[in-house]
Amino acid sequence: MTIDDLWAVSTVVLGPFIGSFIGLLTLRLPAGRAWAASRSACDACQRPLGVVDLFPLLSYLWLRGRCRTCKAAIPPRYPLLEGACLLIALWSALSQTGPMVPVTAILGWWLLLIATIDSEHLWLPDILTLPFGLAGAVLTIGVADAAPWTPLLGAALGYGGLAAIAWLYRRMRGFDGMGGGDPRLLGAIGAWVGWQGLPSVLIWACLAGLSVAAAQAIVRKRLSPGEQLPFGAFLAVGAWLTWLWGPLHSLLRAGLG
């Protein structure tokens, strides 16, 4: 096994365990519960969970989706997130080589965590977005060999551009059009994709948002007045696609070439 193979295999093996941790965070952070030191327990009978209960994916299958003690149903969100993180790891291993495999997986896992919380609670906590941006700056400079100013400029333009749009919308319409966490998230994304990738992130995000809005309109026949959409989740989609495929103008140039 080569070093590149080891990077890929290690990332794929780690994926479901990261998904299990993300499942915990998506429940405990919005509820304000401790997550760093407290032990996992069954929500129904409060029995502390052991290794047999916590092994990603396999435990859910072996226990047939129920607690060993009280037989309460285990929320399917856990295997779904574990499976999603496994798919992100596989995608990273197939699209990257060497240490860029775990770097890409870290980006995808973090975006999944942020998108899940924003989709369920319309909340983008700074405890997730700010370290996300810092990690992007460190990893793109240290592993991807980006120039030191690239993530800094990307973060500044990402935050400043979306904050300016939000300010103009508020001045023109008299109410907020997006949450306060969205500009900080785009700033953090800019630390990963650089300033060149920011327009592509926004284009993908708008396309994802319009697709969801159209699907909701078809299913419900109409949109509810004042209904909010999780723009942070759409930004996460845009960030992932831009990281994997590069800025859209590069794709267009390659296609025309």
Rank of each mutant, 00 (worst) to 15 (best):
M1E: 13
T2M: 14
T2I: 15
I3F: 12
D4M: 04
L6K: 04
F17W: 08
I18S: 01
I18D: 00
G19Q: 05
L29G: 03
L29Q: 02
P30I: 13
A34W: 06
A37T: 14
R39G: 08
A41F: 08
A41I: 05
A41P: 01
D43N: 02
A44L: 04
L49G: 02
G50A: 09
L54R: 15
P56G: 14
S59M: 01
L61H: 10
W62K: 04
W62Q: 04
L63P: 04
R64F: 14
G65V: 06
R66H: 09
C67I: 13
K71Q: 09
A72M: 09
R77W: 06
Y78M: 12
L81D: 00
L81A: 00
G83Q: 00
A84D: 00
C85Q: 02
A89D: 00
Q96R: 14
V101F: 13
V103M: 14
A105N: 02
I106F: 13
I106R: 05
L107N: 04
G108D: 02
W110K: 05
L112G: 04
T116I: 10
I117G: 01
I117Y: 03
D118E: 00
E120L: 14
H121C: 10
W123T: 06
D126M: 00
I127E: 13
L128E: 08
T129L: 03
T129R: 05
T129C: 05
L130M: 06
P131K: 03
F132P: 05
G133E: 06
A135D: 03
G136F: 07
T140D: 00
I141M: 15
D145V: 10
A147Y: 07
A147C: 11
W149H: 12
W149Q: 14
T150S: 06
T150H: 03
P151C: 10
L152N: 02
L152P: 00
L153D: 02
G154T: 02
A156N: 00
Y159K: 05
G161W: 12
A163M: 09
A163Y: 05
A166D: 11
L168Q: 14
L168V: 15
Y169F: 15
R170T: 15
R171I: 13
M172H: 08
R173I: 11
G174Y: 09
F175H: 15
G180K: 07
D182M: 00
P183D: 02
I189D: 09
W192A: 05
W192K: 03
G194Y: 06
W195G: 07
V201M: 04
V201S: 00
W204G: 05
A205I: 04
A205H: 06
A205Q: 07
C206P: 00
L207G: 03
L207M: 12
G209N: 09
S211D: 11
A213C: 10
A214N: 03
A214W: 13
Q216T: 10
I218F: 12
V219T: 05
V219W: 15
R220C: 10
R222H: 13
R222V: 07
S224F: 11
Q228K: 14
L229Y: 15
A236F: 02
T242Y: 07
W243N: 14
L244W: 12
W245R: 11
P247N: 08
P247H: 11
L252H: 09
R253Y: 13
A254M: 14
L256S: 08
L256P: 01
G257D: 15
